[in-house]
C-alpha cells in the first residue's frame, strides 16, 4: 500500500464483512436473531482479544459480557460504512480501558524488578512467545501499553496481517509495525529465554 493512501475497509479473516454489516443493520432494527448470529460469530474473538489484557479468566469473561452489552445498546447507531469487526474491537478496546481505570491496576516498580528474567536479554524473535509458559506470557503482555497489547493479540493470537491490523485499529501499516516492534522488544525484557531459565 502506498504510504499516503487511505486504508481499505477492514475485512475479517473469513471475508464476512458484508454479511456482518447486513446482520448488524438488521439487529439495529430489532432483529434479536441477527444479534445472536453476530454474537456466535465473534464472541470467541472478543474473548481472545481481552484474555491477554487482564489478569484472570474471570476478568476476561466479565469484559466479554460488558463488550456485548455495550454493542447491544450501540447497535441501533451502527454505520455499515465501518466493518463490524473493527467496530466491535473498538468497543472492546474502550471496555478494557474503562475497566483499567475503574480497578486502577498499577504495576509497581518493585513488582517489575521481582519478575523473573526482567534483566535478561533473549532472542530477538517472536518465537519467545511460543516458548515461554502461558502465565508468563500473559503477565508480560498485560504490562504492555493498551495499543501494544492490541497489536500483539491481533497478530499472534488472531493471526491478522499487519495490513489487516492497521485497518482494525485505524493506524497506518508503518505505525503498526513500529508498535509491534516495540512491543516485542518489551516482551524480550519481560519474558526469560528458555536458556536463561535452564
Amino acid at each position: 500500500m502506498p504510504p499516503n493512501s487511505q486504508p481499505s475497509p477492514p475485512v475479517s479473516p473469513d471475508g464476512t464483512t458484508d454479511e456482518d454489516a447486513v446482520l448488524a443493520v438488521r439487529a439495529g432494527k430489532g432483529d434479536t436473531a441477527a444479534f445472536g448470529a453476530l454474537y456466535d460469530r465473534y464472541v470467541e474473538a472478543v474473548y481472545r482479544y481481552v484474555y491477554y489484557r487482564v489478569h484472570s479468566d474471570t476478568d476476561a469473561e466479565d469484559l466479554v459480557s460488558d463488550v456485548f452489552m455495550r454493542a447491544l445498546r450501540a447497535i441501533p447507531r451502527y454505520e455499515p460504512r465501518q466493518a463490524f469487526l473493527a467496530w466491535l474491537y473498538r468497543i472492546a478496546r474502550n471496555a478494557v480501558i474503562d475497566r483499567a481505570r475503574r480497578t486502577r491496576i498499577q504495576i509497581s516498580f518493585e513488582d517489575a524488578l521481582a519478575h523473573p528474567g526482567v534483566d535478561q536479554i533473549v532472542e530477538p524473535d517472536a518465537g519467545l512467545l511460543a516458548l515461554a509458559d502461558k502465565e508468563t506470557v500473559r503477565a508480560a503482555i498485560a504490562r504492555l501499553t493498551p495499543l501494544q497489547q492490541e497489536v500483539i493479540v491481533l497478530r499472534f493470537v488472531e493471526g491478522y496481517s499487519t495490513s489487516e491490523i492497521a485497518n482494525l485499529v485505524g493506524k497506518r501499516e508503518g505505525t503498526v509495525r513500529g508498535i509491534q516492534f516495540r512491543a516485542l522488544e518489551m516482551l524480550r525484557t519481560l519474558i526469560p529465554s528458555r536458556e536463561a531459565l535452564a
Partner: peptide
C-alpha cells in the same frame, strides 16, 4: 496466518 496464529495460545472460553 496459520503460523502466526500458533505463536500465542488461543484461549477458549467456557
Amino acid at each position: 496466518r496459520r503460523e502466526r496464529r500458533g505463536i500465542l495460545e488461543r484461549p477458549v472460553m467456557r
